[in-house]
């Protein structure tokens, strides 16, 4: 009987160990990066949010922008997406639209609509690390950086975060040497990212200031990017966040650049 107990005890222990190791396996770096990428960009079938952008330059001058962003997933593998960004403030960029088709097999397609000239302008995808409408965010921050463009490693695991390091595969395309990301272990949202330049100095910091659970998804509702060298920063406030709005794919087209899809922008 003792023998049996021992066997059962051993079996339970093995089971527990196995379970532990299964859990440990799920936490490999590529899965952390994928989960984080999903949490930031792909939750739900689609999503929309109103964004208030406050841009403060190194001298403390403030500029404000207001925009509505709609995003739709085109597949179930966190790949292709379409983005529609409609500007409502200030007056000189009202009705301007920025649209991105995020492709899997080739570079993204991007357009800008300028209402005063009724002009649909194509923008090159290579300019993705350029300021988005004068803010400290880049175009690439809007639709996300492709996770395959960097090599990722797990630096550290703290009680609350996975700390990862991402190094670009093609360094001459970007201005950073690498960046470190703090990924929340529960929600998988990246809470902070630090960008290092060639001198190993942090010159750019992304920080999540507030999160909420919306439609059962952990969602960033306030975030900022700081330029650590000039001291300038941009703060984003998200409101009216909503997931799964049944947004049709057709709104991401020239037709709706010229005529904003009001129904889905409300």
């Amino acid at each position: 009987m003792n023998k049996l107990n021992n066997i059962i005890g051993l079996f339970l222990l093995t089971l527990a160990t196995a379970q532990y190791s299964v859990q440990a396996q799920t936490l490999d770096i590529s899965q952390i990066v994928k989960k984080a990428n999903h949490a930031v960009l792909y939750q739900g079938d689609d999503g929309k949010a109103k964004i208030d952008m406050k841009i403060i330059d190194g001298k403390g001058r403030e500029r404000n922008r207001q925009l509505t962003m709609i995003r739709k997933n085109l597949d179930d593998v966190d790949g292709a997406q379409k983005y529609y960004v409609y500007f409502s403030k200030p007056a000189d960029i009202k009705k301007m639209v920025f649209m991105t088709w995020k492709n899997r097999e080739r570079e993204d397609d991007r357009w800008l609509y300028l209402p005063a000239l009724d002009l649909v302008k194509r923008i090159a995808a290579s300019d993705e690390r350029t300021s988005f409408v004068g803010s400290h965010f880049f175009y690439e921050d809007v639709s996300g950086r492709d996770i395959d463009e960097d090599v990722h490693e797990l630096l550290e695991e703290t009680e609350k975060y996975y700390v990862t390091k991402s190094t670009p595969k093609t360094p001459n395309l970007v201005e950073f040497k690498y960046y470190k990301t703090w990924v929340d272990k529960q929600k998988f949202l990246p809470i902070k990212a630090e960008y290092f330049n060639d001198k190993e100095v942090i010159y750019r910091t992304y920080t999540v200031l507030d999160t909420q659970t919306i439609d059962s998804y952990a969602t960033v509702t306030q975030a900022q990017i700081e330029d650590n060298i000039s001291g300038g920063k941009t703060v984003l406030n998200y409101s009216s966040v909503k997931y799964n709005n049944d947004i049709p794919e057709k709104i991401f087209s020239e037709r709706y650049l010229r005529r904003a899809p009001k129904k889905y922008l409300r």
Binding site: I55, D57, R63, S131, G134, S135, H136, G232
Partner: peptide, 14 residues
């Protein structure tokens, strides 16, 4: 006819 356009944005595009 040849044309060249150069556009430089500075100071947070101000």
């Amino acid at each position: 006819l040849l044309s060249i356009r150069l556009t430089q944005l500075l100071m947070q595009q101000d």
